[in-house]
């Protein structure tokens, strides 16, 4: 008996001593609609870096959709290790409604947890047949606009606030005038896609509309994918879009993926991560990388959500919650049809 026990203990000791097998780690990145290409590139680069550093194989699965819809999925139990959404409000919603993310999440990483930025521009058909130059041109009766639904899409909310902000600036901060402007603008929207990528499909592939209000990165990607078919019009003023990132505290603890999830998000701030972001048409935070890609991103007067709307919580409540200005505009628009 004793010899049998010794044999067993020996076997365990041999198998455990110095035994640190390479691990296979999986992460789920729940992101918003147009980041597919960005995170395909980021994931490949990070996996290589992580393998070199630790010997572990990390596989990052991606889930994409309208930012608000993605946030709801996480609140409802989708086990995201990290979220990389279109706006801070959606991550706040996860933190508040599910408790899965620490409420101070935005202070945990640099630049308010926003490793890259973007803005809102217009994509028009080659030759700009409707002569669109600025926001005012979008409310002309003969112009058809494609923009996604702010109820489900983070990008659409940026579009909406960009238009509203422009109107405020042009009308001495007159909210009524701004609402009138945005009402006219949405009167020209024949269809509301649930997400930004869907809206791009509507405009680019289905040939609907004269102008697509889009993330700058999405517009640049369309130029790259369909050379000679479209042009970008940069409006006189637009919004600084800051898509944030966070690890989901309770999930990474449960999955045992906290170190790799944090390293993954920190990689976005590294020179390599910033370079990839810039290559995929996101404005990098890193000044050196930004300088290198300066020609890709025209200078534009940008305002922030905090400056004009008092932050995302207030903007959400005023404009996008039930009975907010968007609902009022939609109801009025339906009444007029």
């Amino acid at each position: 008996m004793k010899s049998l026990l010794k044999l067993f203990v020996g076997l365990v000791a041999i198998s455990m001593a110095g035994y640190a097998p390479a691990k296979d780690v999986k992460l789920l990145n729940v992101s918003y609609d147009p980041t597919r290409e960005l995170y395909q590139d980021i994931n490949k680069a990070f996996a290589k870096q992580w393998k070199d550093k630790t010997g572990d194989t990390v596989t990052i699965e991606q889930s994409h959709g309208g930012s608000g819809k993605q946030a709801r999925a996480v609140i409802d139990g989708l086990e995201a290790d990290v979220v990389t959404l279109a706006l801070a409000y959606d991550i706040d919603a996860i933190a508040e409604k599910s408790g899965q993310i620490a409420k101070d999440w935005q202070r945990r990483l640099g630049e308010n947890s926003t490793p890259y930025t973007s803005t809102i521009v217009f994509l028009v058909r080659k030759g700009n047949p409707r002569g669109i130059k600025d926001w005012d041109d979008l409310i002309r009766p003969n112009v058809k606009i494609v923009t996604p639904n702010p109820k489900s899409s983070g990008g659409a909310r940026w579009n909406y606030l960009a238009a509203w902000g422009y109107a405020l600036k042009n009308n001495n901060n007159n909210e009524a005038k701004a609402k009138e402007f945005v009402t006219k603008l949405f009167h020209n929207v024949p269809i509301l896609d649930p997400g930004a990528r869907g809206a791009t499909t509507t405009f680019v592939q289905r040939g609907i509309g004269d102008v697509l209000i889009a993330w700058e990165n999405e517009a640049l990607l369309s130029l790259k994918d369909s050379p000679g078919k479209f042009e970008i019009v940069t409006p006189s003023v637009s919004i600084l879009a800051e898509p944030p990132v966070a690890w989901v505290d309770k999930v990474v603890k449960r999955h045992g993926t906290e170190p790799v999830a944090k390293a993954y998000l920190e990689f976005l701030y590294s020179p390599e991560g910033q370079e990839i972001a810039a290559r995929d048409f996101y404005r990098p935070r890193n000044q050196e990388v930004a300088q290198k890609y300066a020609n890709q991103f025209p200078k534009i007067t940008l305002f922030t959500v905090d400056e004009l709307f008092g932050g995302w919580q207030k903007a959400q409540k005023t404009h996008f919650d039930n009975d907010g200005t968007f609902d009022q505009i939609q109801a009025g628009d339906l009444d007029n049809r």
Binding site: K144, P190, I191, D193, P194, G198, R206, I208, G209
Partner: peptide
Amino acid sequence: DQKVRVLERQKEIDTEA
């Protein structure tokens, strides 16, 4: 043509939904 495209796209979106 635009109306038809919009209707077709709307149908597409509805199907996806």
